[in-house]
Amino acid sequence: MKNIRNGIIALAAAALLGACSNSLEDEAGLGVDPTGGAGAGGAGSIEESSIEYFNVQVGDRVFFGTDSSELDSAAIQTLTRQARWLNDYSTADIVIEGHADERGTRDYNLALGARRATAARNFLLSQGVPAERIRVVSYGKERPVALCSDESCWGQNRRAVTVVAGGPTS
C-alpha cells in the first residue's frame, strides 16, 4: 500500500464535505451521489490502482455554476487528486465528458459542455497529465444523472466527468 493513501482518503472526505456545502445533496432523492456512488464499504476494500478507486475515492467528477465553466476550489481539489492518480497509478487514456443542465438550448449546451470538459482538461494538463492521454466530449444536456427539475438536480448535472478507459461511462 502506498503511503499517500491516507492523505487521498482525507482529501476525498474533504471533497465530499465541500460538495455538500455547495448544496449538492440529493434533496429530491432522485439523483446520484455526486462522487459517483461511493456508498458503504470503506476505502479499505478498494484497490488503490483500480478504476473503482478513481471513480469513488479520488472523485471522477467536478461541478459548475449555472452557465459557467469556472473551476471552483472543490473542483480544483478533485482535479488535483485526479491528476495525481492518473500520474501515479495509470497509463490509461481518459475521456472527459462535459455536461450541462436542462436549462439551456441544445446547441449552446453542447458548446458549454465542451467548455467545461476543456476547463477540466486544461487543469489536468497543468498537473502533468500528458495531452495525448486526454480526449474531451460534450453531451450538452443529453445525459442528466439527476432527473428532477430544480436546482438540487441541475447542480449535479452541470459536471465534467473523467472516464478512465476500461471503466464504465457516466
Binding site: 465553466s69 446547441d107 453542447l110 458548446a111 465542451a114 466530449v137
Partner: peptide
C-alpha cells in the same frame, strides 16, 4: 479537429454552416 454541431444548409443547398468546438471555444 473537434466536435461539430448546429448544422444548417444555405438556401441554394450548396453549403452548410456548422459550429466547430476546439479548446473550449466554439
Amino acid at each position: 479537429p473537434g466536435m461539430t454541431f448546429a448544422p444548417r444548409f444555405s438556401p441554394d443547398g450548396r453549403q452548410v454552416v456548422i459550429s466547430l468546438s476546439q479548446g473550449g471555444a466554439t
